Amino acid sequence: MALVTISGYPCAGKSTRVAQLTAQLRHILPPHLSVKVVSDESLNIPPSAYDDSRAEKPARGALFTAIQRLMAQDTVLIVDAPNYIKGFRYQIYCAAREMKLRVCTVYVVATPDLCREWNASRTNGRAYAPETLENLLVRFEEPSSMVRWDSPLFTVPWTEEGVPAAEIAQAILSGNVKPPNSGTLAAAKAPSDALHVLEQTSIAVVSAIMEAQAATQGSGGLVTLPLSTSLNVHITLPARNLTLSELQRLKRQFVTVHKKAITLGTTEKGAVDWAEHSVANKFVTYLEENLKP
């Protein structure tokens, strides 16, 4: 349904705002929609995870995995974490687009001095080390309504008592759902035997061409290549003798290009057919385009 990303300085009051927003959304949203919160605290990620990059990277990975697991069409998922890196907010945005969810960002604002004061007053083991807090304050990348992954953006300063729950609800209920693009779509995977079929079928086509050429004595023209008892393909050959080395060179080029599509995935959204007859026809077309008269 929707993903709400919370962003702000450490100890800026994000969890307090999330509690306010969650309570109000549960009254505003239709009954079939649930509101869930995923946070560092719910995942048992301690503030010390932000002390150094070696600990922070797996912590962000655990948060992102939880986000992907909890996203659903009947759920408004609120991500209560620092989310201070714009690249991570973009990663969350892409995951939401892949699931065809509406998105919005809530920027909880507080002054650095207030954050230091509130951090020092924490007694529940959720306080940041002073040097870690200062590092996070410096590294914070402020959300911007000018970029698509932060918009629509709702800013809640520390001076306001509540959150604009009605406006946020309207955004996640009636905002545009942006379709996945090629950057967020998972690549279509080739079958496990695709490499074998590619190699063996192209070898069979080369062998069949050499036999057909011997039968026609190099006269060229349209010939039928019997690749198996159930598969025949047609190719127009030039009126000259083709050498085995020439055909093998073109076969290697064809296999190399298509091997990359198999191993890395394809952007053709599943349109590639790796069946024997499809590979044979593709190779025949490739040969007709590259064989010199």
Rank of each mutant, 00 (worst) to 15 (best):
residue 195 L to Y: 01
residue 39 S to Q: 08
residue 44 N to S: 13
residue 61 G to Q: 08
residue 245 S to Q: 11
residue 140 F to S: 01
residue 99 M to V: 01
residue 10 P to W: 06
residue 35 V to Q: 09
residue 142 E to R: 12
residue 125 G to R: 09
residue 145 S to Y: 01
residue 237 L to F: 05
residue 17 R to K: 09
residue 46 P to K: 09
residue 253 Q to S: 10
residue 127 A to W: 02
residue 252 R to D: 12
residue 96 A to C: 07
residue 223 V to A: 07
residue 194 A to T: 06
residue 148 R to Q: 13
residue 243 T to K: 07
residue 35 V to F: 11
residue 145 S to Q: 13
residue 207 S to T: 11
residue 200 Q to S: 15
residue 171 A to V: 03
residue 251 K to Y: 00
residue 120 A to G: 11
residue 264 L to V: 02
residue 134 E to N: 14
residue 188 A to N: 08
residue 49 A to L: 05
residue 241 N to L: 11
residue 117 E to Q: 14
residue 32 H to M: 05
residue 226 P to L: 03
residue 290 N to A: 02
residue 189 K to E: 10
residue 249 R to Y: 05
residue 200 Q to Y: 07
residue 27 H to A: 09
residue 201 T to W: 11
residue 59 A to L: 00
residue 176 N to S: 13
residue 175 G to I: 13
residue 283 F to V: 06
residue 35 V to A: 11
residue 161 E to I: 04
residue 86 K to L: 06
residue 221 G to P: 04
residue 172 I to C: 12
residue 56 E to Q: 10
residue 11 C to R: 14
residue 149 W to E: 14
residue 280 A to M: 07
residue 109 V to L: 10
residue 217 Q to G: 06
residue 29 L to Q: 12
residue 125 G to I: 03
residue 40 D to F: 05
residue 47 P to V: 06
residue 213 Q to N: 06
residue 214 A to P: 01
residue 53 S to Y: 01
residue 74 D to M: 01
residue 28 I to C: 08
residue 85 I to H: 08
residue 241 N to I: 08
residue 30 P to W: 02
residue 229 T to F: 04
residue 182 S to G: 00
residue 20 Q to Y: 02
residue 105 T to I: 06
residue 253 Q to T: 05
residue 128 Y to H: 15
residue 116 R to M: 09
residue 10 P to Q: 02
residue 131 E to A: 12
residue 93 Y to P: 04
residue 83 N to A: 03
residue 148 R to I: 11
residue 54 R to F: 06
residue 137 L to P: 03
residue 202 S to V: 05
residue 281 N to K: 15
residue 27 H to I: 01
residue 242 L to Y: 03
residue 108 V to K: 00
residue 266 T to D: 12
residue 233 V to L: 03
residue 65 T to C: 01
residue 148 R to A: 13
residue 213 Q to M: 13
residue 28 I to F: 05
residue 263 T to K: 07
residue 4 V to Y: 05
residue 22 T to W: 00
residue 268 E to P: 00
residue 204 A to Q: 11
residue 213 Q to S: 10
residue 283 F to A: 03
residue 116 R to Y: 05
residue 180 P to Y: 04
residue 135 N to L: 03
residue 293 P to H: 12
residue 72 A to D: 15
residue 107 Y to R: 02
residue 92 I to Y: 03
residue 16 T to K: 04
residue 67 I to M: 14
residue 63 L to D: 04
residue 14 K to R: 14
residue 14 K to Q: 10
residue 195 L to V: 07
residue 118 W to S: 08
residue 169 A to F: 07
residue 89 R to V: 11
residue 258 H to W: 14
residue 41 E to D: 13
residue 112 P to N: 09
residue 216 T to A: 08
residue 202 S to D: 04
residue 145 S to M: 01
residue 252 R to M: 06
residue 138 V to E: 08
residue 168 I to Y: 05
residue 186 A to D: 09
residue 278 S to W: 02
residue 211 E to S: 13
residue 222 L to D: 07
residue 29 L to S: 10
residue 164 P to C: 06
residue 272 V to F: 00
residue 33 L to D: 03
residue 52 D to Q: 12
residue 119 N to E: 11
residue 15 S to L: 01
residue 197 V to D: 10
residue 46 P to F: 07
residue 8 G to W: 02
residue 161 E to H: 10
residue 257 V to H: 07
residue 107 Y to H: 15
